[in-house]
Design a binder for these strands. Structure first.
Length: 297
DNA sequence: GTGGTAACAGCGCGGCTTTT
DNA sequence: AAAAGCCGCGCTGTTACCAC
């Protein structure tokens, strides 16, 4: 079986082509004053601009489904399933705010914490600007330029998208101790802004979010400079499916535990002292975490 | 001015709840 | 049972502010 492809211009052509079968051009594109259909307002556009709403849910659903597809085979290799819109009350993943995609031991929408292997939050959008050209019954999509040429700030380049992703992850992390061993990954199709480089690394080091991963190898045209990864690998860009798969499987193999707390040095010292009496490193760690969790009791 | 960021505003959509 | 209302998610444009 051929490996799936990562995000590219072809993905966006596919999105528009498939969506045009069920939605009108006006629902998917802006109409310029000279009656052209544009995916985004070009940076130099003069004239009245509107804000498109009807495309939001469509691109959201498309990218979530796309992410599900790319995770499917990896899940299968782990004898698990990739599931969309996962509900897990214990992790405060409700029907109103489910996990976009998760790898789970069963294929049910409703999951128990112990059956969730990884949680993915999808934050992707249309990256390039496109013009829909119609001559007679023929439709053609012309790429007008990358995200530097249009008004929009797609995907993870938006600060509020980043903050929303971080907020959702923290909500899961603090919901229950059951979430402590579940990795959380943000999937995007753009880089992140410079001001978030240290934030994403810190989030990874603290164990809150295991990574902001871009599945778009070439977000900029003409070999435009774009970051491969931050120093601490909090952000990573993947260039092939194989690279993505390898990294994900490696992450899922690590038996990690999230922990956090505010304790006095005295308490911490005691915990370490007690935990150190265990035989192996693993057992020392387990004892320490139990002490942290139960507050030494 | 330019470029970047964070916050605000906006609204279609779908699911759920309340009202009729 | 059907209609109306509410809420949060989806994404993008605008504004205020900052540093240079």
């Amino acid at each position: 079986m051929a490996s799936p492809n990562l995000w590219s211009k072809e993905s966006e052509i596919d999105f528009f082509t498939k969506s045009l079968e069920v939605a009108s051009p006006e629902n998917l594109f802006y109409t310029t004053k000279d009656k052209k259909y544009y995916a985004y307002w070009p940076k130099n556009y003069k004239g009245t601009k509107t804000t498109l709403q009807s495309r939001n849910a469509i691109i959201g659903a498309y990218t979530e489904k796309w992410s599900l597809e790319i995770l499917k085979d990896i899940a299968k290799e782990l004898k698990a399933h990739a599931v969309r819109n996962v509900i897990c009350e214990d992790l405060e993943l409700t029907s109103g705010s489910p996990a976009d995609v998760a790898i789970c031991k069963t294929d049910s929408i409703i999951q128990k914490p112990e059956d969730i292997i990884a949680i993915f939050e999808v934050k992707m959008s249309v990256v390039w600007n496109w013009e829909l050209q119609q001559t007679g019954s023929k439709q053609n999509l012309k790429c007008l330029g990358d995200y530097k040429t249009h008004q929009g700030n797609p995907g993870l380049l938006r600060s509020d998208s980043m903050l929303k992703a971080i907020g959702k992850c923290i909500s899961v992390r603090i919901s229950s101790l059951e979430s402590a061993k579940i990795p959380i990954i943000i999937l995007g199709n753009t880089p992140v802004k410079k001001s978030y480089y240290s934030k994403v690394d810190n989030l990874k080091n603290y164990g809150l979010i295991q990574g902001f991963w871009s599945l778009n190898p070439n977000p900029l045209d003409n070999n435009g400079e774009n970051i491969k990864s931050t120093k601490g690998k909090g952000f990573q860009r993947f260039d092939t499916y194989a690279e993505f798969k390898e990294r994900l499987i490696a992450l899922l193999k690590e038996d990690m535990m999230f922990f956090a707390g505010m304790k006095s040095k005295n308490e911490l010292g005691k915990f370490i002292h007690v935990a150190d009496k265990e035989d192996t490193y693993e057992k020392k760690a387990e004892k320490f975490l139990t002490l942290m969790r139960d507050n030494g009791k």
